[in-house]
Design a protein around this nucleic acid. Structure first.
Length: 428
RNA sequence: GGAGAGGUGCCAGAGCGGCUGAAUGGGCUGGUUUCGAAAACCAGUGUGUGCGCAAGUGCACCGGGGGUUCGAAUCCCCCCCUCUCCGCCA
């Protein structure tokens, strides 16, 4: 969340930010928060004075003559009732302020392009060229089913739509690509993590998925737990409530986990194949560092580069886009997506999402560090990016690397993880 | 699931109705000492928020939320978490 002071000093920036994100109702939260804040600030001095008086009165009690005591206590009792009423109101206002503040989106950076949805994202750069075929290429679902690698029918039968099962070499490829991603990141100094998949609301709220993302989240109501849609949630929450040492920063983590998404409201969208599914595996990179905007931007570029390097090892053409305001999430200040070429879609399809938050998440998570120079604790900055998400990345892997006979070429980087094999599948 | 023990500042750990925002130790900062360092010694050092140019000062905060009381870190209730034992189980 934003600092209430930011709202007081520059409410227009917060409002404009929500508008740029095409969240007009969230812009209204700015004004509601400020109204509550004003009321609260009017109340507090009165309350402080009353409490101060009460405290001192208590200390004087012992000095009083016994016959004076009874009258004194009667007066104190009355004052207590009055104080209690005001304290109730203070409590309500504080809760309200917290609620409204949680609704106010992070302010998008100036460099975030204007636009209402992903069609207005702006291409930043491209690597490789969309694959050309001298034969009729197959879509991954046709290829996969023909090879006996994929079964959507039975998966849907037992688990509902948007489910899949991977078999044989495709199951191995899926695992190999995830392992390659983890290896690359560990080489680059990231600490591997296997995180919890079920988390409390605090983690969802802290990372900015709640309020707002409840409909996208599978919830285990019996235990009050939520299945994560990304390991960003448990990993960024790792140090919630802590006071980190400046010397221990930056923290760089890479987590591999299953991810679960309800995909509510996407009926009829991307219904075929492995593109939009309820459950997938993702390797995610997370950085927690000091509160320095330039450093955050630097990290941001670095984590995008990490993902690009992996895609290049996988020999997949991709492009990087700067995500526009309307396609930006509530907590993000700036986001790059990486889109990988998917022949069956005849388009680049989103495979990665790299966000920087500055201190927006850290503030919600109460994630702080003690800077070296000043002694005042500051909120950390957080960032994250996909390293790889599978099976979605299997779409370009199968489709771009397919041969005319239906076999699939294995990029050199993956061969050691697949027993040295250069080709998967049989001639169809 | 059953039975106990506990959650206090950056960390460890006392306190168990007012004199406690909190002993003590560690850490950290500054100083003395030293050619320099270590050690030793001295001093300072919580977080948030209000007022103030500042020095300073009011208030809140001892896992979270309620309650008792003129007054709660301390007493009572609920919840969360950690640990030990028993049961169950991968």
């Amino acid at each position: 969340m934003l600092d209430i002071r930011t709202l007081r000093e520059n409410p227009d920036a917060a409002r404009a930010g929500a508008i740029k994100k095409h969240l007009p109702d969230r812009a209204e939260a700015v004004d509601r928060a400020l109204a509550v804040d004003t009321e609260l600030r009017g109340l507090v001095p009165t309350l402080d004075a009353m409490r101060s008086e009460q405290k001192n009165a208590g200390k004087q009690l012992g000095k009083l003559a016994p016959e004076e005591r009874e009258a004194f206590l009667a007066v104190q009792k009355e004052k207590k009732v009055e104080l209690h009423k005001l304290e109730e109101r203070e409590k309500r206002l504080k809760h309200q302020l917290e609620e409204e503040l949680m609704l106010v989106p992070n302010i998008p950076d100036a460099e975030v392009p204007e636009g209402k949805d992903d069609t207005l994202n702006v291409e930043v750069r491209k690597w490789g060229v969309p694959t050309k075929f001298d034969f009729e290429p197959r879509a991954h679902y046709d290829l996969g089913e023909a090879q006996g690698w994929l079964d959507f029918t039975r998966a849907a039968e037992m688990a509902g739509s948007r489910n899949y099962m991977l078999f044989g070499d495709l199951a191995l490829l899926h695992d190999a690509v995830l392992r390659l991603a983890v290896e690359l990141m560990v080489e680059r100094g990231f600490t591997p993590i296997d995180p919890p998949l079920l988390v409390r609301d605090a983690a969802m709220l802290g990372t900015g998925f709640f309020p707002g993302g409840e409909e996208q989240t599978y919830r285990c109501e019996k235990d009050g737990l939520n299945l994560i849609g990304t390991s960003e949630v448990p990993v960024t929450s790792l140090h919630a409530g802590e006071m980190l040492k400046a010397d221990d920063l930056p923290k760089k983590y890479v987590a591999r986990s299953a991810c679960f998404r309800r995909e509510a409201g996407t009926y009829g969208k991307d219904t075929r194949g492995l593109y939009r599914v309820h459950q997938f595996q993702k390797v995610e990179q997370v950085i927690v560092d000091v509160a320095d905007r330039d450093k955050s931007i630097e990290h941001h570029h670095a984590i995008v580069q990490n993902a690009e390097d992996l895609l290049q090892k996988l020999e997949l053409p991709y492009r990087v886009v700067a995500v526009c305001g309307g396609d930006l999430g509530v907590p993000q200040a700036m986001k790059y997506d990486i889109e990988t070429w998917m022949p069956s879609r005849e388009h680049y399809g989103e495979t990665h999402s790299a966000s920087r938050f500055y201190d927006y998440q850290a503030r919600r998570l109460n994630l702080r560090y003690r800077p070296k120079e000043s002694k005042k604790p500051l909120f950390c900055h957080t960032l994250n990016n996909t390293v790889i998400a599978s099976p979605r990345v299997l779409i370009p892997l199968l489709e771009c690397h397919q041969n005319a006979d239906g076999t699939v070429r294995v990029p050199a980087a993956l061969q050691p993880l697949l027993g040295g094999r250069e080709v998967l599948g049989r001639a169809l």
